[in-house]
Structures are given as C-alpha cells and as structure tokens.
Amino acid sequence: MLELFVYGIVLGSIIALGAIGLTLVYGILRFANFAHGDLMTAGAYVSLFLVSSLFPLIGIPREPLGPFSFGWRMVAAFPVTMAAVSGIAILLDRLIYRRLRQKGSSAVILAISALGASFIVRMMVLILWGGDYRSFFPGVLRPAMELPFGVKIRPDQVLIIGVAALLMVSLYLFLRYTKTGKAMRATADNMELARISGIRTERIVLWTWAIGGALAAAGGVLYGIDVQIHPGMGWNFLLPLFAAAILGGIGKVHGALIGGLVIGVLQQLSTAWLLPTYKPAVAFIGMIIILLVRPQGIFGGETGGT
C-alpha cells in the first residue's frame, strides 16, 4: 500500500503539471481546453524525435547518467521540448482560438474547437509516428532502489518528483514576483479591469499558452520516462487533469497541484483492487463525487462553477 502511495505521488506530480496548465488557461481564457492532454502527447513525441533521431545525428552520447535510465540526450531534449510545445500551443492559439475570440465566439464554441484541435494534434502524431507503444531508451534496465518499509522506487521516479517540484516552485515565484506574473494573476481575476489598467491582455494570453504548453510537455516527457508513450496517452490523461483542476478549484494553481497529487494517489491505490486500465474511470468517479459534494473545489470561492 505504501509503495502504491509513493507511485501515486509520482503519477500525481505528472498530473499536476498538466492540471496547472489546464487551470491557468481556464482561469485566463475561460474555456475548457480539451486539447491539453494532447499537448502532453505532443511533448512526449517531440522528445522521442530528439533523443532517438536528432541527437544521435549530432553526436550526443547515449550512455545513461548515474543511476538513471537516460543520459545527456534527454537532459538536452527536455528544455527544447518544453519550448517546442509552447510554440505548438501558441500556434494553435494564433490559428484557431484567437480568431474565435476576435469573432466573440462563446466559451463552448472555443471548447469544441479545442476538441477539434486535440484530434488534429493526435492525428499528426499518429501520421508521423504510428500507433505503437514506444520507449525513449528501449532495453535500458532500470534497477529499483530499496527505501525503508520495503518501498521499491526507481531513481527515475525520484527525479520525476524532483523535476516536477522544481518547475512548480519556479512557476510560483514567477507568478508571485515578476511583473508578467502579477499581470497574469490580474487578468485571471478580471480581464476587462486588467485591460483598463493598461495590461496588454493578448500578451498575457501568449504567456499563458507558453507556460501551459511547457508544463504539459514536461508532464508528457516525465510520463514517458516513467512508463512508455503512445498516441492515446494524452486523451487518457484528460479525465485526471480535469478531475485535478476541478478538485483544486478551477483557476487555482495551488489547487491544481493538490488536486493532481490526490487524483494520482487515488488512481494508483485503486490498482490494489481494480485493473490498472480502470484508472481513467477512477478519476472520473472521483470527479463526480467532488461535483456532488463541493462543486467549487477545495480552494474555490463561494460561487462555484457558475
């Protein structure tokens, strides 16, 4: 049980990375971005391209670093992937969402277009890489370490928690202390008021997509390091992401973090009784319970979703 709990924290940090981006987009642009899971998929596959095709060409060595399953190739690929997926998210905004915003389309129309965008991204991945399960470094053995109380954990998994925590602390500092971060929070509170105060909201929108895309990419790559990647992974993440964002209160960044960890632990603990394939369903049931008991989420305000 303790072991499952620890694995739940690993999965939960990955979910939290996605859910934070989802909740930021929701808070600032006010629509449910159904393409967010597929940004994670995009991140995983951009990394796959880098570590298995591009970096071998330019001669970055394959050797694993220390106890980890990956080497310099992945270290180099990680920031490049985050930047690339930021670019993809901004591109989608430019091509689709911004046009709809300017036409004054409703939030639901934006959400439908996001559903369309999610299929477009996934189909691109399928066309380029096919539908198989893939590993970043096939054949690399990853011995587990023994922790107290008989908990076995791989060095990779410790690193996943560390990287996720680092990214979240950086985001917190960014939102709290930088000018852009403050402007983002102001825009999330009230876009009209922010615009009147001289905040260039379209720039804030770009920042939102850049951060959301980068965090989603990080989540996707970390998931690939932990398990394997496949084109449907982002879609499978969609329910946990929304469950985490709703649990924490839509638009609340720290809420999405806590929500992600709770949903991750819940999903892993459920495998003690249920088949692992039921994980998305577990997230779904958790979400329904939240909606029934406290629809505004743990950290949400009085008014709830409306």
Partner: peptide
C-alpha cells in the same frame, strides 16, 4: 445530469467524456 446540470456547461462536457470512457 444530477451532479452536472446546475453547474457551468463545461462540467457536463467533462462528465460525458467520463461516461463514454468508463
């Protein structure tokens, strides 16, 4: 419909995805 129809429209959307996957 019971848990979702009193909330914002997106909640129904997410819940229906959940139903379909489940």
């Amino acid at each position: 419909g019971i848990p979702t129809l009193r909330l914002r429209e997106d909640y129904l959307a997410i819940a229906t995805i959940g139903i379909a996957e489940t």
